[in-house]
Measured scan of single mutants.
Amino acid sequence: LGPKYVGLWDFKSRTDEELSFRAGDVFHVARKEEQWWWATLLDEAGGAVAQGYVPHNYLAERE
């Protein structure tokens, strides 16, 4: 699936296409579209919880 990303700060969605998340949440990014990335929010087991657009500057690649 490629690298995983972690949320740096809490983010509250403003549209139906955006995905709310908390700092520390883990994502798989499917598409990078300039300022907004289409991402899947993952649970602790790595299963998909939700999908939506997230601001790229709120995520960091997980080491």
Rank of each mutant, 00 (worst) to 15 (best):
L1F: 13
W38Y: 12
V54R: 02
G24Q: 02
H56G: 15
E17T: 12
Y5K: 00
E18I: 09
A48F: 11
G24C: 08
R62L: 15
K32V: 06
V54F: 03
D10G: 04
A48K: 07
Q51F: 08
S13R: 08
N57R: 07
E33W: 09
G46Q: 05
H28R: 09
R31G: 05
W37F: 06
P3Y: 09
D16R: 09
Q51P: 01
A60W: 08
A48H: 08
E44F: 09
F11S: 02
G47W: 10
S20L: 04
A48S: 10
V49R: 08
R31Q: 07
W36S: 06
D25I: 08
L42D: 00
E34I: 08
E44V: 09
G46D: 08
L59W: 04
A50S: 09
S13Y: 03
D43A: 03
W9M: 12
D43Y: 05
A48R: 07
E34F: 08
V49P: 02
L59S: 01
E34T: 10
A23S: 07
F27D: 00
V54E: 02
D10Q: 06
G46W: 05
R31H: 10
D16Y: 08
Y58Q: 04
Y5F: 09
Y5D: 00
S20E: 05
V49M: 08
Y53G: 01
V54Q: 01
S13M: 05
V29E: 01
V29S: 01
G46A: 05
F27C: 08
Q51A: 11
E61Q: 11
F27H: 00
P55S: 05
G24P: 01
G7V: 07
R31V: 08
G47V: 14
P55E: 05
L19R: 00
D43W: 06
L8K: 09
R14C: 14
A60M: 12
A48I: 13
K4E: 12
L8I: 11
E34G: 15
V49C: 06
D16A: 13
R22N: 11
G46F: 07
F27S: 01
L42R: 00
E63A: 12
W36L: 10
A45W: 14
S13V: 03
V49I: 12
Q35L: 14
A45C: 15
L1K: 12
D25V: 05
S20W: 05
Y5L: 02
A45F: 14
D16F: 09
W36D: 02
Q35M: 13
L41A: 02
G24M: 02
K32A: 05
R62Q: 15
N57M: 09
W9Q: 10
A23K: 12
G52A: 02
S20F: 04
S20A: 06
W37A: 03
F11R: 07
A48T: 11
W36M: 13
D25M: 06
H28V: 14
Y5E: 00
K4F: 15
G46H: 06
K12W: 11
G47Q: 14
E34H: 10
H56Q: 11
W37T: 00
Y5W: 09
L41M: 09
L8W: 06
R31L: 07
R31F: 13
E61V: 14
V26F: 11
V26W: 10
V29T: 01
F11Y: 15
V26N: 07
A45R: 13
H28T: 14
G24T: 02
Q51G: 05
V54H: 02
V49S: 06
T15F: 10
F21G: 02
L8E: 03
E17N: 14
K4R: 11
Q35C: 15
R22T: 09
L41E: 00
S13G: 15
Y58W: 06
H56W: 13
A39D: 00
A39S: 04
V49Y: 05
L8P: 02
E33I: 06
G24I: 04
W37D: 01
A30H: 15
S20M: 02
V54T: 00
L19S: 00
G46S: 05
V6R: 03
P55C: 09
K32W: 04
V26D: 03
A23C: 08
S20V: 03
G2D: 11
V6F: 08
W36Y: 11
A39W: 04
T15E: 07
A39T: 01
K32N: 07
V6T: 06
L41H: 01
T15A: 10
A23V: 07
Q51M: 11
G24S: 02
T40I: 15
P55V: 05
V49K: 09
V54L: 03
P55Y: 06
V26P: 02
A30M: 15
A23W: 04
Q51Y: 08
G7W: 05
L41K: 09
E61S: 09
E34R: 09
Q35N: 14
A23T: 06
G24F: 00
H56M: 13
K32H: 06
Y5M: 02
D16N: 12
P3D: 08
R62I: 15
Y53E: 00
E18R: 06
A39K: 00
F21M: 03
L8H: 04
V26R: 06
H56P: 14
E17H: 12
W38V: 06
F27W: 03
S13W: 05
A45D: 14
V49F: 05
V26Y: 10
E63W: 11
A39F: 03
D43G: 05
R22D: 05
V29F: 02
E44Q: 10
L8G: 04
K4G: 06
L19H: 01
V29I: 09
V29M: 01
H28M: 12
F21P: 01
Q35Y: 15
Q35I: 11
K32M: 09
E18Q: 15
E63T: 13
R31C: 11
L1G: 12
D25Y: 05
E63L: 12
D16G: 11
S13L: 04
E34P: 11
V26I: 14
A39G: 02
R31K: 10
D10S: 06
P3W: 08
K32T: 10
T15K: 10
R14L: 11
G47L: 14
L1N: 12
Q51H: 12
L41Y: 02
D16V: 10
L1H: 13
S13E: 04
K32D: 04
E61D: 08
A30E: 15
L42G: 00
A60S: 10
N57L: 08
G52K: 03
L59G: 01
E34M: 09
Q51E: 14
E61N: 07
W36G: 09
P55N: 05
V26C: 08
D10N: 07
F21T: 01
E33R: 06
N57I: 08
E18D: 05
D16I: 10
D25P: 01
H28D: 08
G2S: 13
R14W: 08
V49E: 03
E44K: 10
K32P: 05
R14G: 11
G47M: 14
G52D: 00
E61C: 08
G24V: 02
K4H: 14
D10P: 08
Y5C: 06
E44Y: 09
A50F: 04
T15R: 14
F11H: 08
A45S: 13
T15M: 07
L59K: 01
K12L: 14
L59H: 02
V6Y: 11
E61P: 14
L1Q: 13
L1W: 13
L1E: 13
L41N: 01
V49Q: 07
G46P: 02
W37M: 03
P3F: 09
E44W: 08
E61A: 10
R31I: 09
F11Q: 03
E18S: 06
E17G: 12
P3R: 10
V29G: 02
L59P: 04
T15N: 13
W38F: 13
A60V: 15
F21V: 04
W9R: 13
V54Y: 03
W36N: 06
T40C: 13
E17K: 14
S20D: 07
E44L: 09
V26G: 04
Y53T: 03
R14Q: 13
R62C: 15
E63F: 11
F11C: 08
A50N: 07
T40K: 05
E63V: 13
A30K: 09
W37E: 00
F27E: 00
E33H: 10
D10I: 07
G47Y: 13
W38M: 06
G52P: 01
L41R: 05
K12P: 06
L41V: 04
K32S: 07
P3L: 11
L42F: 06
T15Y: 10
L19Q: 00
G52V: 04
G24W: 03
L59Q: 02
Y58S: 07
E44D: 12
L1V: 12
W36Q: 09
A23Y: 05
E34V: 09
L1M: 12
A45K: 13
Y53Q: 05
K32G: 04
Q51S: 15
L8R: 07
E33Y: 11
F27L: 11
R22S: 12
D16Q: 11
W9T: 07
T15G: 13
F27K: 00
L19E: 02
Y53M: 07
L42I: 08
E17V: 11
F11G: 03
L1I: 12
E17L: 14
W9V: 09
